[in-house]
């Protein structure tokens, strides 16, 4: 496990741009950083969960900003990684219907908390990618999470993929309750992301 300095790269939206939410930032920095080169890519996020009625899935496009440099090599990024920033605007969430999206935005309160951030503190490289640890901030709550991050060569770039499960109530997000309580969103959700980082 490499011990890294936290380097949050946070692309906070101006408050004036209400209803814009950055849904994930991954910061990855080495204690012994080297020459850095920033790369950016589009990353697709999928958020899935269940309710007392049925399962649901919403999607949102985001970006990955990766700073490579001298560090522990990981698959696909042999030069190592200094920082990785995944950024998503929650305003861009696409849900199966408008009503569901409205409930999501109500729960996420984007006017107050336009962004969610994930700051990666540690990673351990393996043949499959990296096991990562960091902090995820949703609304005004920050929690540590661990999940595997897959980095695989893809064309001229590197595909970055990951999945993390969490309980939204841990972050103070109230699961939507609609139809007089008939439909309650369950607090456990899965967030998956996938994208290709081009050099």
């Amino acid at each position: 496990m490499s011990v890294l300095n936290t380097a949050t790269v946070f692309t906070a939206s101006p408050t004036g741009l209400a209803r814009m939410l950055t849904a994930g930032v991954v910061g990855l920095a080495l204690s012994q950083g080297g020459t850095a080169a920033a790369q950016q890519a589009t990353v697709d996020f999928t958020v899935s969960g269940n309710s007392t009625i049925r399962g649901w899935t919403c999607t949102v496009p985001g970006t990955a900003q990766v700073t490579t440099g001298q560090s522990t090599p990981v698959r696909g990024l042999e030069g190592g990684v200094q920082t990785v920033t995944l950024t998503v605007r929650v305003e861009d969430f696409v849900c199966p219907d408008d009503e569901m999206r409205e409930h999501l935005l109500t729960a996420m309160r984007p006017e107050e908390f336009p962004e969610i951030t994930f700051n990666l503190r540690d990673y351990a490289a393996s043949s499959q990618g990296a096991s990562t640890t960091g902090t995820l901030t949703i609304l005004d709550a920050t929690k540590e999470v661990n999940f595997p991050l897959s980095l695989t060569p893809s064309g001229s770039g590197v595909r970055i993929e990951g999945e993390v499960a969490l309980d939204m109530t841990d972050y103070g997000v109230e699961p939507p309750v609609v139809m007089l309580g008939l439909m309650r969103v369950r607090p456990r959700i899965r967030i998956q992301f996938s994208g290709v980082i081009e050099p």
């Binding site: 049925r54 399962g55 649901w56 899935t57 849900c95 199966p96 569901m100």
Partner: peptide, 11 residues
């Protein structure tokens, strides 16, 4: 199938 998941038959 959307009775079970919003993705329905497309998913």
């Amino acid at each position: 199938l959307q009775a079970y998941h919003t993705q329905g038959e497309a998913g």
